[in-house]
Design a protein around this nucleic acid. Structure first.
Lengths: 361, 361
DNA sequence: AAGCGTCCAGAGAGCGCTCTCTGGATCCGT
DNA sequence: ACGGATCCAGAGAGCGCTCTCTGGACGCTT
């Protein structure tokens, strides 16, 4: 009897703290009259175990209410069974800056991503741990977390020009998937929407309904997506015979959309506008109304994202929708594959955007 | 030499998998020329260690790039260093049902809660693991997760009438904090907003600007918050000398708000309305506009929540704001306290709502 | 019938860490 | 100067699990 253990291992210590009489695999094995190894095999659903033993162990598990201790399991399998979901702001622009975590989190977009991730993760019993990384210390926290083996991989959700995180992750060799293509090419998987194609959808709609003076309100051009939308817009315009179009640069916010639109109306008498996201599109609608213009009759507006404001806005926004949930789901699937086969090469997926026609165009 | 170890413990196995030559505490101790116990003491910042040893260990840690293995640590400390954040829908009404996780997650409210939680959690190095629990299996997953020791406590975010989760958690004895009071009183901590008081704020505003025919659009009355808002509304109305007021029951959605408002206008010629959330308030504004009424001149509308639509809506919504971020932050703090002292009794915090005056009332 | 391969249950060695316990050194009081 | 209290570093015992390895039982081939 080497590992001798008191006969009544879970007796009262008299101590007030915890020790809620945790049931261990040892207990299960004893109760089932088999070895710990066999009990482990059954619990983990390994093949090649005598049906009688399986039944005995299953019975003991149920009877005792056994739940395997994840820490002990992780210690030997070297798997945490969790992945990090990092909401990554850019530099240290503070929690409420334009790209700070406060903003990103409050955006319904974030929730849709989470929802999509959960769809793929939860059934596989892998769970997302949330972390925000806008500052240097926070990024360091992410890296530590990973080094401590507390998560098996990373999903980077937001991301903003100049974000050093993707580079750090690529360097560290941790399985990583990004939402949206990294600015500088790197050996990392990602999912993205075909932004150019989305912009083309918007232009086609605008041209299709007879607009002849079409402008664009872009986002900050250091954001890869914004740049792609502008490029797609220009290309589509050229295809329709418009060699030039007025461009106003906004900041992805409602007020900036309004200001840009005011200029577009005054200086270029636009009758159609593509805004690179819905917040700016709503701002554009407001500006049009303030200028005494009817939407969509005098000026049509197409947004991008199909965010919550699109539906709330009056007139409801015609917009380009990115299939965020599906993209997130795929993102998680890619990571899961990467985790299953560490030698796999990065894989990416580009999704087609869809034009959602409502009232503004 | 009992636990003899090969001189070169991390030699190649020839196997292609992992084993990235993880640095262990043992390595640190050896490199610093001290015992593993001392190294541990330094790493964990325990007092009473020779400064010379501290320096030696710190040096070794830096030199080797040591990061403690969380699984091993958890195994003995019985702490996961994570908490579960459960987005709990009600019954099995499907992912896209009115209270399904899809809806809850896409609501910016969710992101604000997460943001608030992170604010308290992240600095203490406790990390939130997200889980959705609308169905029986999902609730079981939550309980398993806890039993497996993968999280130290739970924060329940959404919650809906008849949700069995709070009861299950209370029964299991896991440290738990709810966002919003449980329907049936139970030994659980929670944070909530003073809903009655919020409703009173709305009524006061409406009465203050001269409304004389005031109605309310409530949410589903099995949601505690909705009921409280109705009660607060009635009380405040009575205080202002209105013995009766028309009540329409919505579903917390934009269309339902619109329908309720249409009835309120047609049947009661209201000139002021309090909607129990902003989505319904926006719907109400739409209905008013459709009925040819001006907001706020012909009919004033006050919402509740100060959600994103409130700002986007035209006219911008006057609404009652719950300090979601602070509530969430406090929620996390309460849980942290509970974790630190398991014998502590449940503690709750009620927050004062604030009237945010914009254009609709 | 002997020899060999196959299958499967049990034994036991850790995974990396924390923490109690031991014992040597130092410091105090008398 | 000596006994006792105090302090602190090291030794070692696990925490609960997985997984390799061992060896017995069985079935097949020759």
């Amino acid at each position: 009897m080497p590992t001798s253990k008191p006969t009544s291992p879970r007796s009262e210590h008299g101590g007030p703290p915890r020790r809620t009489a945790a049931v261990t695999l040892e207990d299960v094995a004893r109760s089932a009259g088999v070895s710990r190894a066999s009990a482990s095999r059954v619990v983990n659903g390994k093949a090649g175990v005598d049906p009688e033993i399986v039944a005995a162990v299953r019975g003991a598990v149920g009877r005792l209410g056994y739940a395997p201790n994840q820490a002990a399991r992780s210690l030997v399998t070297r798997r945490a069974g969790t992945v990090l979901v990092v909401v990554s702001g850019g530099g240290d622009d503070g929690p409420d800056g334009p790209w700070g975590p406060g903003q990103v989190l409050a955006d319904p977009f974030f929730g849709r991503v989470i929802g999509g991730l959960m769809g793929s993760l939860q059934p596989r019993d892998v769970h997302p741990v949330l972390m925000v990384a806008s500052s240097e210390v926070e990024r360091e926290r992410v890296l530590s977390y990973l080094r401590e083996g507390r998560a098996d991989g990373v999903l980077v959700v937001s991301g903003h020009a100049g974000d050093p995180l993707p580079g750090l992750l690529a360097a560290s060799g941790v399985p990583t998937v990004l939402f949206s293509r990294p600015e500088t090419p790197m050996r990392l998987s990602y999912v993205d929407v075909a932004s150019e194609q989305g912009a083309a959808l918007a232009v086609d709609r605008l041209v299709g309904r007879g607009c002849e003076r079409i402008g664009i309100i872009t986002g900050p051009l250091d954001v890869p997506g914004a740049e792609d939308r502008l490029a797609g817009f220009r290309e589509a315009m050229a295809r329709h015979g418009f060699g030039w179009a007025p461009v106003e640069r906004g900041a992805f916010s409602l007020p900036s959309g309004r200001e840009c639109m005011a200029r577009l109306i005054e200086e270029h008498q636009v009758d159609g506008v593509f805004a690179s996201n819905d917040y700016m599109a709503v701002g554009a609608v407001h500006a049009a109304v303030e200028a005494g213009l009817r939407v969509p009759d005098d000026v049509a507006v197409v947004g991008f994202d199909d965010a919550a404001p699109a539906v709330v806005c009056r007139p409801a926004l015609t917009t380009v929708r990115q299939p965020v949930e599906e993209m997130a789901a795929e993102m998680a699937r890619i990571l899961l594959d990467l985790l299953a086969d560490r030698t796999a090469t990065p894989r990416s997926a580009i999704f087609d955007p869809v034009l959602v026609v409502r009232d503004s165009a």
